[in-house]
Simulated scan of single mutants.
Amino acid sequence: MNPLFSLTPSERGPIVNTWEQDLGGPFEICLEITGLEPLVQNNEKVAKAQPVAADRNGIKPTIHSSISGTVTDVKKDFITIREEGTRVAEPVDFPGTGTREMLNALRENGINVRGLKKDCTLIINAMPHEVGMDGHRYLIEEFTDVMVTGLNYLKKAISPKACALACPTGMDWTIPGCTGYEIDPVYPNSLPELITKAITGKEMPSEVCVIDATTLYRIGRTIHGRQPVTLVIVKVGSTPFLTPVGTPVGILLKLADFRPGEHDRVILGGPLTGEAVYSLKHGVSPETQAITILKANKEPTVKDNPCVGCGECVINCPARLEPNMISRHSEFGLYENTLTYNIASCIECGLCGYWCRAQRPLLQYIRLAKKELAAKPILEDLREKQ
């Protein structure tokens, strides 16, 4: 099997706590706030777990500071905070009834609840998203009680008709209250759409909601601690780090003894679906589970080559789309034309770009078109799939 596609979790190793390491200077975090409104100003003192950016439309989760410190910079897309002091935000109370109220409380405490709805079939996805992104193992094996706390809160909030746990074949993982399903640990079987098909036999039916096991853990930890979760487990190579949200990727790479070259690409996530950062000061987000380095070759990994019409992207697309046609229209700004080719059904697995003989940035073109289309108010169905 191509190791790039294997989703078998690795053996558990010791987790490194970032704050216990010698960082060689003051610790500073960088929080991405793209599309959100800043709630703080330069030189303002902030407490750990204090909200620093929120969505005025009430859709995206609120961003909180993961440390106590001073705001050193506020830009359109980023807030930088230097660690200082030991201030902690006041605990919050969570409502015990009302679907909208309970889900909104989670969103305001940093949890992405988009797609969750009442009376659904709830699937907890414990599959590694890509190779090496297997922090679920530690969370499920060590913090089952926290997972149960999160599940109980969701049961009160959305009253699911059934709860299922999807995990790799051979992993004896359980969460009380969930029916277990073993999934063949081969990418892209870990993606929500394929998880749903494997468990229900249907392709993304409207009555099914899928959340990541890490999200369930964060819900449980948030409810239990009455504060937003400010720490994430990020795997760099074979080393898992427990680190504050917003930790610059450069710090984690240094602690893992990685020295990226001049033209290497640093990816938040995996090589197929992750997103490259332009600076090692870029901080990890609450959803970041791994950092991947793509080593530079003599030639670029992707090029602005024309499509050669080989059809490999179509043959290997699990959603049965035509990525070649979608990317061609997106490349020239003809975004609405991509609707003809069902762009909203793209699950962004990245296999089209992997198999492309012309090395075109197919997934990037598709994501660009989705972003442009989602900005238009008439395309509500597409926006919900982002």
Rank of each mutant, 00 (worst) to 15 (best):
T215H: 00
I251P: 08
N316Q: 06
P318Q: 07
S238Q: 13
E262A: 13
Q227L: 14
G237I: 06
A276M: 12
G246K: 07
K281G: 09
P248V: 11
E193R: 10
T200A: 09
I267Q: 06
I293D: 01
P248I: 06
V210K: 11
L280V: 00
I199L: 10
C209V: 14
T301P: 00
S238W: 00
K281W: 02
V249F: 03
L231R: 15
I315V: 12
G225K: 13
T301G: 14
Y278R: 09
N189P: 03
A319H: 08
S190M: 04
P286G: 03
V245G: 01
S238T: 14
N316C: 02
T273S: 11
G261A: 10
A213N: 13
S206F: 09
E299A: 11
G269Q: 08
I267M: 12
E262I: 09
K254W: 03
P240F: 07
A296S: 11
T230K: 06
P244V: 10
A296L: 06
G311T: 05
G283F: 02
V210C: 14
D212L: 07
T247A: 12
Y217I: 11
T301Y: 13
L194N: 00
P192G: 10
T273H: 00
D264F: 14
K197Y: 09
E203C: 07
D264L: 09
D304P: 03
A296H: 02
V284A: 08
I233N: 13
K303C: 01
P248T: 08
E275I: 12
P205L: 13
A256R: 04
V245L: 03
C307S: 06
D304E: 12
P228V: 07
F241T: 03
C310S: 14
S285A: 10
E193W: 00
I223D: 02
G311K: 13
T301I: 11
S206P: 03
R259E: 08
S238N: 15
L255P: 08
A198K: 04
E275K: 09
G274M: 02
T215L: 10
E287A: 12
T215R: 10
A290G: 12
R218H: 15
Q227A: 12
S206H: 15
R265N: 12
M204V: 15
H263P: 02
R265P: 05
